[in-house]
Design a protein around this nucleic acid. Structure first.
Length: 264
DNA sequence: ACATTGACCTGAGAGC
DNA sequence: TGCTCTCAGGTCAATG
């Protein structure tokens, strides 16, 4: 699930549920998911603190407990958050549970454990430390910056879009969507793309990400013009009705319309 | 420098 | 119904 739009939805969820409440106990059930700090130390750092700000960079969610110290969550392929009360159930694969003193709890659920729980005290340097490229929704990101970043790479456009060091936050699903909306073939070489293509990709990227966030990253609520929801071999292209193809690019299953997205 | 493959984990869904 | 197989929205390391 979690690419940029999903993580942004999680951030808003955290922001609207979990701010400024004193943390009582913290239980980490999968200590193997905690990186760069011991689970015990992380627990101590959180106990008695409160979340006071949230931020997102690419697929990383940060929950600040001080000006410059924060919990870091990465959701892997299957992570999500749930805030729930004493009378409610937790979640099936709860890897960490934060208990607030108001009686509510926050579950970090991650079935496949491909995510990460960590801690940082360098808000400014976080992205650089993690080798994360620019976040496409942050201020200062524009079409020329995008083109500049992409042009630094060779190889295919799909892998550049998914490369977190180039642009942070786009994964397999949304790269397919962006390419579809911009009518660019996923296997197209960057060197074969014209500036016009990159402008289209930039516009599609902004539009797709913003629209997805507005729809709460819920595939059922996304516009019918989106490819998401038709990720099935032989499904109908929402634009031209042709049969959607599934192919492999850089090791990932990619869906595309062979008519709208011509090779070049 | 890039693409490919397998590893990490666990479970859902397809197919029999 | 129950079993097996394949695949899954992420990232990293090893290999060609």
């Amino acid at each position: 699930m979690p690419e940029l739009p999903d993580v942004e939805v999680f951030r808003k969820y955290l922001q609207s549920t979990s701010m400024n409440q004193k943390i009582g106990d913290v239980k980490i059930f999968s200590t193997d998911m905690v990186k760069g700090v011991s689970a015990q130390k992380l627990t101590r750092l959180l106990q008695g603190a409160s979340f006071v700000w949230t931020e997102r960079h690419g697929k990383y969610l940060m929950a600040g407990v001080g000006d410059d110290s924060f919990l870091v969550l990465h959701f892997g392929m299957t992570g999500f958050l749930k805030y729930f009360g004493n009378t409610e159930e937790g979640t099936p694969h709860m890897r960490m549970r934060i208990d607030f003193e108001n009686g509510y709890h926050l579950s970090f659920d991650c079935m496949r454990k491909l995510g990460e729980i960590s801690w940082s005290e360098d808000r400014e340097g976080f992205a650089k430390e993690r080798k994360l490229g620019a976040d496409p929704l942050h201020k200062g990101f524009n079409a020329s910056r995008f083109a500049e970043l992409i042009r630094k790479k060779r190889g295919s456009i799909k892998s550049a879009l998914m490369n977190q060091e180039v642009v942070a936050g786009i994964g397999n699903i949304y790269s397919d969507e962006i390419l579809f909306q911009a009518r660019v073939h996923p296997g197209a070489g960057i060197k074969d793309l014209e500036d016009k293509d990159l402008q289209e990709l930039y516009k599609a990227m902004k539009d797709v990400l913003k629209t997805a966030i507005k729809s709460k990253a819920d595939p059922r609520k996304l516009p019918g013009s989106f490819l998401i929801g038709r990720r099935q071999e032989g499904a109908e292209c929402p634009r031209c009705g042709a049969r959607i193809q599934k192919r492999k690019f850089s090791g990932r299953g990619a869906y595309m319309c062979p008519v709208c997205q011509k090779e070049r």
